[in-house]
Design a protein around this nucleic acid. Structure first.
Length: 319
DNA sequence: AATGATTCCAACCGCCGTGGG
DNA sequence: CCCCACGGCGGTTGGAATCAT
């Protein structure tokens, strides 16, 4: 039997208006994201719950970077797509500022063509393992083993970082320092060149910014353990998981450690400006759309380094 | 300038997993 | 157990924007 449509007839479809966005954002300000079923009822929006959730997670949620994928992001997507397949939500976990929908669109409209073009032009191997359809000098199994090794190393590094000598603030300071010192990473995080988007996109941005002060007044509501981990690690469930390590004991321990170490207060004090890169608001909200970061194992910078490190078997991308 | 083709992306659709009753 | 509601995910689509002729 077919499942009845989630949306009754009468619900509005199509593009969201600024007014609808404001209503939705206002509601989420008051109640926090979640319980989407109740959103249309409580707001009077003629939208189905899924539509509301999608609008929030893909567009209105703070901390989203739109358009202009950097070369680093591009590489990461290619790498991760090769590793994980079309698991866009998992891939998006590694690109905290991007939504799965965005990545999926980017892949389907741009990267896939690029790769196909490369393949057709005979520059086989130029992507190394990165290209899905490009011949792979290293087998998937080999990549997974390498990944495991790197994850192990990353865990070790994380443990060191979490040693009692280091306070959360120093760790965060180091993290920030790493992010800003590493050229590739810095450019990755700081490339906030505004999208030449339509006017409404900008206004949606502004709507998201309305939330700037909200989390500070209601920090606990949407703040979860994972979101805090998100800030430090920025997602890493699937690298090791691919059906294996979600919720592993190590992950849980690390999660708990993070939870203990990083209270909301420390996050708040370290970020007064709404930053698209390391904003607590952003990451907190990202948690709503990417909650499945339970298997946090690897500091993002390390994983990213690995992903972008082509020394092993990756040649320079030359599109 | 007009028009047809192509690109891009926001939003929708339908399936799946999960948790509560 | 089974059923159902819900949230999440990946695939697909419609139409606006852009490009080519």
């Amino acid at each position: 039997m077919g499942r009845p449509p989630c949306c009754d007839k009468g619900v509005k479809k199509g593009p969201w208006t600024p007014e609808e966005d404001i209503i939705l954002v206002s509601y989420i300000q008051d109640h926090g994201p979640g319980n989407w079923k109740a959103v249309p009822t409580n707001t009077g929006l003629s939208r189905c719950s899924k539509s509301c959730r999608l609008r929030w997670t893909n567009y209105l949620r703070p901390g989203i970077k739109r358009g202009n994928f950097t070369e680093q992001e591009e590489k990461m997507i290619i790498h991760l797509q090769a590793l994980l397949g079309n698991r866009w939500a998992a891939i998006a976990a590694y690109l905290p500022q991007r939504t799965d929908n965005d990545i999926k669109n980017y892949w389907n409209t741009y990267l896939k063509k690029k790769l196909n073009k490369l393949e057709a032009s005979g520059s086989e191997g130029s992507l190394g393992h990165g290209g899905v359809s490009v011949s792979q000098p290293m087998s998937r199994g080999q990549w997974e083993r390498r990944l495991q090794t790197d994850i192990h190393m990353a865990k070790k590094a994380l443990s060191e970082a979490l040693s009692p000598k280091k306070t959360s603030s120093t760790f965060l300071a180091e993290l920030n320092s790493n992010l800003s010192n590493d050229n590739s990473t810095a450019s990755f995080y700081n490339s906030t060149k505004p999208t030449p988007s339509i006017s409404y996109a900008s206004s949606a941005d502004n709507i998201a910014r309305l939330l700037k002060g909200w989390m500070k007044s209601t920090p606990k509501r949407a703040a979860t353990q994972n979101s805090i981990i998100n800030l430090a690690c920025a997602g890493a469930d699937t690298a090791s998981s691919e059906g294996t390590t979600k919720g592993s004991s190590t992950s849980v321990e690390l999660s708990e450690t993070f939870e203990t170490l990083f209270g909301y207060e420390s996050l708040e004090s370290s970020n007064s400006e709404f930053s698209p890169s390391l904003s607590p608001e952003g990451t907190l909200f990202q948690d709503e759309s990417k909650p499945d970061i339970t298997g946090i194992d690897v500091p993002f910078s390390l994983l990213e380094k690995w992903l972008l490190d082509d020394s092993g078997c990756q040649e320079k991308l030359s599109f």
